[in-house]
Protein backbone atom coordinates (compact mmCIF):
# COMPACT_ATOMS: atom_id res chain seq x y z
CA UNK A 1 0.00 0.00 0.00
CA UNK A 2 3.05 2.29 0.15
CA UNK A 3 2.52 2.88 -3.54
CA UNK A 4 -0.79 4.60 -2.81
CA UNK A 5 0.20 6.35 0.40
CA UNK A 6 0.72 9.68 -1.43
CA UNK A 7 -3.00 9.67 -2.16
CA UNK A 8 -3.64 9.94 1.60
CA UNK A 9 -6.51 7.45 1.63
CA UNK A 10 -9.04 7.40 4.46
CA UNK A 11 -11.72 4.79 5.06
CA UNK A 12 -14.76 7.10 4.56
CA UNK A 13 -13.46 8.35 1.20
CA UNK A 14 -12.56 4.81 0.12
CA UNK A 15 -16.12 3.67 0.96
CA UNK A 16 -17.50 6.66 -1.00
CA UNK A 17 -15.51 5.74 -4.11
CA UNK A 18 -16.37 2.05 -3.78
CA UNK A 19 -20.08 3.05 -3.72
CA UNK A 20 -19.62 5.17 -6.87
CA UNK A 21 -17.76 2.33 -8.62
CA UNK A 22 -20.45 -0.19 -7.64
CA UNK A 23 -23.11 2.20 -8.91
CA UNK A 24 -21.36 2.51 -12.28
CA UNK A 25 -20.86 -1.27 -12.55
CA UNK A 26 -24.52 -1.80 -11.65
CA UNK A 27 -25.62 0.74 -14.27
CA UNK A 28 -23.45 -0.97 -16.91
CA UNK A 29 -24.96 -4.39 -16.16
CA UNK A 30 -28.47 -2.87 -16.15
CA UNK A 31 -27.76 -1.21 -19.51
CA UNK A 32 -26.52 -4.48 -21.04
CA UNK A 33 -29.54 -6.43 -19.80
CA UNK A 34 -32.12 -3.77 -20.58
CA UNK A 35 -30.95 -0.89 -22.82
CA UNK A 36 -32.21 2.51 -21.73
CA UNK A 37 -35.03 4.32 -23.54
CA UNK A 38 -34.77 8.14 -23.51
CA UNK A 39 -37.81 9.70 -21.83
CA UNK A 40 -39.15 12.99 -20.54
CA UNK A 41 -40.24 13.01 -16.91
CA UNK A 42 -40.33 15.83 -14.38
CA UNK A 43 -37.04 17.27 -15.61
CA UNK A 44 -37.36 19.78 -18.46
CA UNK A 45 -35.25 17.65 -20.83
CA UNK A 46 -35.25 14.20 -22.41
CA UNK A 47 -32.92 11.95 -20.40
CA UNK A 48 -31.44 8.48 -20.50
CA UNK A 49 -30.84 6.45 -17.35
CA UNK A 50 -27.18 7.57 -17.31
CA UNK A 51 -28.21 11.24 -17.64
CA UNK A 52 -30.53 10.87 -14.67
CA UNK A 53 -27.77 9.26 -12.59
CA UNK A 54 -25.44 12.17 -13.44
CA UNK A 55 -28.12 14.76 -12.61
CA UNK A 56 -29.04 12.88 -9.42
CA UNK A 57 -25.40 12.71 -8.25
CA UNK A 58 -24.91 16.40 -9.02
CA UNK A 59 -28.10 17.21 -7.10
CA UNK A 60 -26.95 15.07 -4.15
CA UNK A 61 -23.58 16.87 -4.13
CA UNK A 62 -25.28 20.28 -4.09
CA UNK A 63 -27.73 19.23 -1.37
CA UNK A 64 -24.79 18.11 0.78
CA UNK A 65 -22.88 21.33 0.13
CA UNK A 66 -25.96 23.41 0.93
CA UNK A 67 -26.47 21.43 4.13
CA UNK A 68 -22.86 22.02 5.15
CA UNK A 69 -22.96 25.70 4.26
CA UNK A 70 -26.30 26.52 5.88
CA UNK A 71 -26.81 24.29 8.92
CA UNK A 72 -24.76 22.97 11.82
CA UNK A 73 -26.82 19.78 12.06
CA UNK A 74 -25.17 16.42 11.45
CA UNK A 75 -24.17 15.78 7.84
CA UNK A 76 -26.01 12.45 7.84
CA UNK A 77 -29.31 14.30 7.32
CA UNK A 78 -27.81 16.04 4.29
CA UNK A 79 -26.53 12.72 2.97
CA UNK A 80 -29.97 11.13 3.40
CA UNK A 81 -31.68 14.07 1.71
CA UNK A 82 -29.18 13.78 -1.17
CA UNK A 83 -29.89 10.05 -1.50
CA UNK A 84 -33.65 10.74 -1.58
CA UNK A 85 -33.04 13.38 -4.28
CA UNK A 86 -31.00 10.88 -6.31
CA UNK A 87 -33.72 8.23 -6.07
CA UNK A 88 -36.44 10.76 -7.04
CA UNK A 89 -34.48 11.93 -10.11
CA UNK A 90 -33.83 8.32 -11.19
CA UNK A 91 -37.48 7.36 -10.76
CA UNK A 92 -39.41 10.43 -11.88
CA UNK A 93 -36.80 12.66 -13.59
Amino acid sequence: MDLLSWMAWTAPVAIFFVCIALMLIGMTIWELRSPTVPRKGLLPLVTTRGDRLFIGLLLAAYINLAWTGVTDLTQWWGAMLGAVGLVCVMRWG
Partner: peptide, 23 residues
Protein backbone atom coordinates in the same frame (compact mmCIF):
# COMPACT_ATOMS: atom_id res chain seq x y z
CA UNK B 1 -9.36 14.11 -8.50
CA UNK B 2 -9.63 11.22 -6.02
CA UNK B 3 -6.54 12.55 -4.24
CA UNK B 4 -8.11 15.99 -4.00
CA UNK B 5 -11.22 14.41 -2.44
CA UNK B 6 -8.96 12.65 0.08
CA UNK B 7 -7.15 15.87 0.93
CA UNK B 8 -10.41 17.78 1.31
CA UNK B 9 -11.43 15.78 4.39
CA UNK B 10 -8.06 15.86 6.14
CA UNK B 11 -5.84 18.32 7.92
CA UNK B 12 -2.50 17.77 6.21
CA UNK B 13 0.10 18.57 8.86
CA UNK B 14 3.06 17.13 6.92
CA UNK B 15 3.45 14.72 3.98
CA UNK B 16 3.36 11.79 6.42
CA UNK B 17 0.99 13.22 9.03
CA UNK B 18 -2.68 14.01 8.56
CA UNK B 19 -5.85 14.07 10.64
CA UNK B 20 -9.35 13.22 9.38
CA UNK B 21 -11.64 16.26 9.83
CA UNK B 22 -14.72 15.24 7.83
CA UNK B 23 -16.71 18.17 6.40
Amino acid sequence: LMTVVNYSVQDILSPSQSVFVGW
